[in-house]
Structures are given as structure tokens and as C-alpha cells.
């Protein structure tokens, strides 16, 4: 059973990676002057939207955490609305942290916010899909030994990798190379994306290697 789970996970992750690759290649066919660096904001929007949609669709198809009790439509709508609020709040929170890290407060607000949206897409949206708008579950998953399925492990690894990627992505900014990718927030968002992609690749491998050690408590 575990191996099939891992295969499902791997395929889901490969689809995510594929969608990211598509967002860098495909828009240039439709949009004039589109390039990853030149029109970075457009790319940020497209990438966030695509990854978000793919994640939601994948979640609906694969449905890794089938909920036990059936819920009414009103409950579902409430859940959806709460998810939206959570997502927005996480964007704001990320924005705040990025500003605290030294991003300009007023100028290039849009860039900073879109970068925050991208980060939220990579981390919070995953959590929302997988765990629902329930912070206490999130806290459980992100604490030590809190993962209850390989999906939780995958979530941990990809979120960590995205955040660490964004963190590392800030390092080239002070270098005086005057490259187009050193402009705020390109290096950070590229770092986050690369971190996310490598997390997506790394998580199934890691789970596969440690499949003997991973024992999950039942709910």
C-alpha cells in the first residue's frame, strides 16, 4: 500500500514540477515580450495561479485525506471562505516578514506582495488543500514527529524547501554583478521556486529511502 501511495505522491509532484516548467515556457507563445526576468511580475502571477490551480485540482482528484464525515454544502462554502481568508492572511504575514527582512516598505510594494503570494502558494495553499483551514492540525504537522502520512511528510519538506530557497535567494542581491536576475524580488522568487521544485523531487525520494523507518500513528 505504501509503495502505491509513494507512486501517487511522485506523480502528483511531477505534475506540479511540470506545471512550473510550463509557466516559464508557454506564456511566451501567447504574450508579447514575455520573459522570466523581463516581465517578472506577470510570471509571478501566472506561476502562482497555475501552481495554485494544479494543487487544488490534484487534491480534488487524489483526495489523500478522505474525510470521514460527510459535510453539507454550507459547511463546504464556509470552509472555502475560511481558506480564502487564511490564504490572504498568510500573504500579509509573509509580506510583513519580507519587509522586516529589509525589503523596501513603500516602493515596489507590488513586487513584494506578489512574492509573498508566491511563497504562500508554495506553502500555505498546500496546507489548506491537505489539512483544511484548521491551524491546530497545521501546528501538529509542523511539530517534531507530527506527520501522520507521507502526504504530511511531503508537505513538511516542500514548505521548508521553499522557505529556505527564498532565504538563500536573498544572498546574491548585494553582489555588484548588475545582472538582471539580481533585481528585487527575482532572485528570491527564483530561489523559492527552485527550492519548491527540489522539495517536490526530494520528498518522494526521502520518503522512499526512509519508508522502513516511517511509522505513522493512526488518527
Amino acid at each position: 500500500m505504501k509503495d502505491t501511495e509513494i507512486k501517487r505522491l511522485l506523480s502528483a509532484n511531477v505534475i506540479c514540477i511540470f506545471s512550473i516548467i510550463i509557466t516559464t515556457v508557454l506564456p511566451s507563445l501567447f504574450l508579447k515580450n514575455f520573459s522570466l526576468l523581463g516581465t517578472h511580475l506577470t510570471w509571478l502571477c501566472i506561476c502562482s495561479a497555475t501552481v495554485g490551480t494544479v494543487n487544488v485540482v490534484l487534491h480534488i482528484i487524489l483526495n489523500p485525506n478522505p474525510s470521514s464525515r460527510r459535510s453539507s454544502l454550507a459547511h463546504k462554502v464556509a470552509r472555502f471562505l475560511r481558506s480564502c481568508v487564511y490564504f490572504f492572511m498568510s500573504c500579509i504575514l509573509f509580506h510583513g516578514i519580507i519587509v522586516l527582512y529589509g525589503a523596501p516598505l513603500i516602493e515596489s510594494v507590488l513586487e513584494t506582495f506578489l512574492f509573498a503570494v508566491l511563497l504562500s502558494t508554495f506553502t500555505t495553499l498546500h496546507c489548506l488543500c491537505l489539512l483544511g483551514p484548521n491551524i491546530h492540525v497545521w501546528l501538529r504537522v509542523f511539530s517534531k514527529n507530527g506527520a501522520m502520512s507521507i502526504w504530511d511528510n511531503n508537505l513538511q519538506i516542500t514548505s521548508m524547501c521553499s522557505v529556505v530557497g527564498a532565504w538563500l535567494g536573498a544572498f546574491p542581491i548585494p553582489l555588484d554583478w548588475d545582472r538582471p536576475w539580481q533585481v528585487w524580488p527575482i532572485s528570491c522568487s527564483l530561489g523559492a521556486t527552485l527550492g519548491y521544485v527540489s522539495g517536490l523531487l526530494f520528498a518522494p525520494l526521502w520518503i522512499y529511502w526512509n519508508r522502513k523507518k516511517l511509522t505513522y500513528k493512526s488518527r
Binding site: M89, S90, L93, I97, T123, N134, I135, H136, V137, W138, L139, R140, F142, S143, K144, N145, G146, V163
Partner: peptide, 13 residues
């Protein structure tokens, strides 16, 4: 639900 710890990224929460 059961709570054990938190991640630093969700301070608001």
C-alpha cells in the same frame, strides 16, 4: 486537536 508545537512561520496563528 492535539497540539505539540508550532512552526515559526505562523506566528499570527
Amino acid at each position: 486537536e492535539e497540539t505539540k508545537g508550532v512552526s515559526c512561520h505562523h506566528r499570527k496563528d
